[in-house]
């Protein structure tokens, strides 16, 4: 019916559009979006309002509606508060370092210097390598008898880096900065290529030095890229799991590197409190989106 009237060019066709075949092409993707994106999103919110826990397969269990109780509980949970503080510490170290280092490296790459392709490749390699693989080598570097303790000698912290309550989180922040930096370098490189060369030439004629040109032309010129970098780095921080799980032995020592996603795993999947874990996910997602909105507002106001 629909096809027939569409061919006739009736009102239905006007409403559907020129190519009803589009529905057949997009159909599988819409199914994917609906089943593995939209529905889980609604399910996450639904679960977070229930005392939803996993029972043995086949067992009928009562999962009462509890309203906002899960939310009230997590906000009062000292482990969750600690995890949020840890993410804050991560972001405070990772974001400024990421912005500064990637912009400096991108500017250096943007100058016509020899071996640019080699340098660009070397910065990108950690980004394409599995976290699990690079964690292997950082574990070794920071281990008790590892190379870094050899280099630092008596200055090395005791207890050693990864089991030290003060150092665990900063090291995670540094390792993640190292791993992700290449991606941000390329983002900035693209942004730099949009800054007209004449601006630099004019500033040079006016006698502005390298630092001055960097601060007055480069930094403002890449501001939209900076917004994107800050938002993406914040999302990475909120999603931390593999590093605290493997590098610091499950968020240790004593919760000093516990992350919200690791807590979701412990609570939701290991202990079966899915409602509680879903509420953590919702709070975290809301926080990330709020931080992104604030970043966008602060960095893009002019």
């Amino acid at each position: 019916m629909a096809v027939v009237s569409a061919r006739r060019g009736g009102r239905l066709r006007t409403w559907i559009g020129r190519d009803p075949i589009g529905y057949a092409f997009i159909g599988p993707y819409v199914l994917f979006l609906a089943g593995l994106f939209a529905y889980p999103l609604l399910l996450a919110i639904y679960i977070s309002f229930f005392d939803y826990f996993f029972a043995a397969p086949g067992a009928e269990v009562d999962r009462p509606f509890v309203g906002l109780r899960n939310y009230a509980q997590i906000l009062g949970d000292p482990v969750f508060q600690r995890a949020l503080l840890n993410v804050a510490e991560f972001i405070i170290i990772n974001v400024p370092l990421t912005v500064a280092l990637s912009l400096v490296l991108a500017s250096a790459l943007n100058a016509r210097l020899p071996f640019r392709a080699f340098f660009r490749t070397s910065y990108y390699i950690p980004y394409v390598t599995a976290s699990v693989a690079v964690i292997g080598v950082w574990l070794w570097l920071f281990s008790g008898g590892g190379l870094l303790n050899g280099v630092f000698g008596p200055l090395a912290p005791n207890p050693s880096w990864l089991v030290n309550e003060f150092w665990a989180m900063p090291i995670i922040a540094l390792v993640v900065t190292w791993k992700q930096l290449g991606f941000y370098v390329l983002l900035y490189l693209a942004a730099l290529q949009n800054i007209p060369k004449e601006l630099y030439e004019a500033a040079e004629v006016d006698g502005a030095g390298v630092v001055r040109r960097f601060m007055t032309i480069t930094v403002p010129g890449v501001r939209p890229a900076t917004t994107l970098v800050v938002i993406l780095a914040t999302i990475v921080g909120a999603n931390l799991f593999t590093e605290p799980y493997l590098l610091t032995g499950g968020g240790g020592p004593d919760g000093a590197s516990m992350s919200p996603v690791l807590l979701m795993y412990r609570q939701g999947i290991e202990q079966g409190h899915a409602g509680y874990a879903a509420a953590i996910g919702a709070v975290l997602a809301i926080a990330v989106m709020a931080i992104s909105a604030v970043n966008r507002f602060v960095l893009e106001r002019e």
């Binding site: 593995l36 889980p40 679960i47 996603v261 979701m264 999947i269 992104s292």
Partner: peptide, 19 residues
């Protein structure tokens, strides 16, 4: 999808796919 963080989906996807 490109902006929503994965942690929001971890628990519901686990419920759907595993349970």
């Amino acid at each position: 999808i490109l902006v929503l963080p994965f942690q929001l989906f971890m628990i519901p996807l686990y419920v759907l796919i595993v349970r």
